[in-house]
Design a protein around this nucleic acid. Structure first.
Length: 427
RNA sequence: GCCGCCGUAGCUCAGCUAGGUAGAGCGGCUGGCUGUUAACCAGUCGGUCAUAGGUCCAAGUCCUAUCGGCGGCGCCA
């Protein structure tokens, strides 16, 4: 049996032809003369009409919202149907008669989160998931074009990447292990053979953050590049973002329109991005009346204020060493300044952090001790500096934060099908 | 970790300020009507007011604790 995608019918390709479609009941309106069944499949929604007296009438009467079915009928152009085409039904075959569907007209955020496994069927969620899939594809396209190799980092790790306080611990047989919070250190291993590597993989953070931009499990776009400096890094990052935004404007028009997401902001994402130093950021904030001291990390309000000025993604770089991780390289002539850069976007703030990694073994050992960490935990990491060390850079970008910004989502949880937050991890 | 808000019918909410018989809309069911557009009209079913304790003649309403949820800050991507 050949089934016709609903989208093809709506595009006018099957006018007056007999077709068979399959899908789920989206809405149903019942009268004496007609039953109107709105059927959705993965490609669209179409109105199907069943006339009184038709052999399909009894089945049409039984149908409930979200029942799965196939319908045979004739495609008719009809202005009265949303979409311009409808199916005049000859036969219905019910696949799975649905029980009373819990999601109806009125719905609260809280309830929809409780039934997320059903809410994912909604038009809105499927559109977002489509864009998410595309953005992942665009990411692969970009790295492919730049000669990067996609690699697969581990999820089980033995020690922290950054500190330790935000790790999820777990029992690994008789030992304690953790879920990774970044693939960075593992990508660093791989540049010694592949030079340019990237991955898109989950990162886990046990931060009890209660905000619209935090997940405990999020997908992390990470890359590392050997023989590269900060300029290479920023060029890579802005190239990636610009490519994703460019391709989204080409391929995701319908999704943006239906989600009422503002697509015009994507056109502003063109290299080179605005770039300011941390010091300049502090000055700008002071000029705006914020009470910030050089050396303090920027808070969310600070980030938002700066991002508003630019109205598009931009870089902040050259942070004070003390607010950055142990592996961060510092300027040789300004040892208090870390070669680190963030990308900030309006409304969300930070979506990416990257930088040069310390490539000198002794400096790295000193930094590890300075931060109160144990060199024993980083023996293999130090090996990378013992055997053919190279200057290298890398970054990590939060896929869901990127999508939240692109699609104007109110909360990051809608950027991922199965969000894990401090309070929610079902289904 | 700190702070704020919320929890009443399957769903969305009102009722709480100032204690006095548990309400509406949607959904379901029954009937009617209509080429309907998240249809409409009538009727009907539906509730241990999150849980536990307290105050009171009387608690959905006031007090305390607990549980659950949402958000802000911090931290981060």
């Amino acid at each position: 049996m050949r089934f016709t995608p609903i989208r093809e019918i709506l595009l006018g390709k099957h006018e007056n032809a007999k077709v068979v479609i399959r899908g789920w009941v989206y809405r149903k309106r019942e009268g004496k003369e007609n039953i109107f069944i709105l059927v959705r499949d993965s490609t669209g929604v179409i109105q199907c009409t069943v006339k009184a007296g038709s052999s399909a009438w009894a089945d049409a009467e039984r149908l409930t919202i979200e029942s799965s079915l196939s319908l045979e009928g004739t495609v008719k152009q009809d202005k009265r149907a949303v979409g311009g085409y409808e199916l005049s039904v000859d036969a219905i075959s019910i696949v799975g008669l649905a029980e009373l569907f819990p999601i109806s007209k009125d719905k609260s955020e809280e309830f929809l989160r409780d039934v997320r496994h059903l809410w994912l069927r909604s038009r809105r969620m499927s559109l977002i998931m489509r864009v998410r899939g595309k953005v992942q594809k665009f990411t692969d396209e970009f790295f492919e074009s730049q000669g990067f190799v996609e690699v697969s980092p581990p999820m089980f790790i033995t020690s922290a990447c950054e500190g330790g306080s935000t790790l999820f611990g777990l029992k690994y047989f008789d030992q304690n292990m953790y879920l990774t919070q970044s693939a960075q250190l593992y990508l660093e291993i791989l540049i010694y053979s592949l030079e340019k590597v990237y991955c898109v993989a989950p990162s886990f953070r046990a931060e009890k953050s209660r905000t619209i931009r935090h997940l405990t499990e999020y997908w992390h776009i990470e890359a590392e590049q050997a023989f590269a400096d900060m300029e290479d890094l920023m060029r890579l990052e802005e190239g990636l973002l610009a490519h994703i935004c460019q391709r989204a404007t080409e391929q995701c028009k319908e999704e943006f329109a239906e989600l009422k997401a503002d697509m015009s902001k994507l056109a502003l994402v063109k290299p080179p991005f605005p770039k300011i130093t941390y010091t300049e950021g502090i000055e700008r904030l002071k000029a705006k009346g914020f009470k910030v001291m050089w050396g303090e990390d920027l808070g969310y309000e600070h980030e938002k204020a700066l991002a508003e000025e630019f109205g598009k993604p931009f870089f902040i770089y050259d942070y004070p060493k003390q607010i950055k991780a142990f592996y961060c390289k510092t300027h040789r002539d300004r040892p208090d300044i870390a070669m680190s850069t963030d990308i900030l976007v309006p409304r969300i703030g930070e979506i990416s952090t990257g930088g040069a990694r310390e490539d000198d073994k002794d400096t790295l050992v000193a930094r590890i001790k300075e931060m109160g960490l144990k060199t024993d935990d980083y023996e293999w990491y130090l090996d990378l500096r013992r055997y053919g060390t190279v200057p290298h850079v890398g970054f990590g970008m939060g896929l869901e934060r990127l999508l939240t910004w692109m699609l104007d989502l109110e909360n990051i949880i809608d950027a991922i099908p199965f969000p894990r937050t401090t309070r929610r991890f079902y289904p």
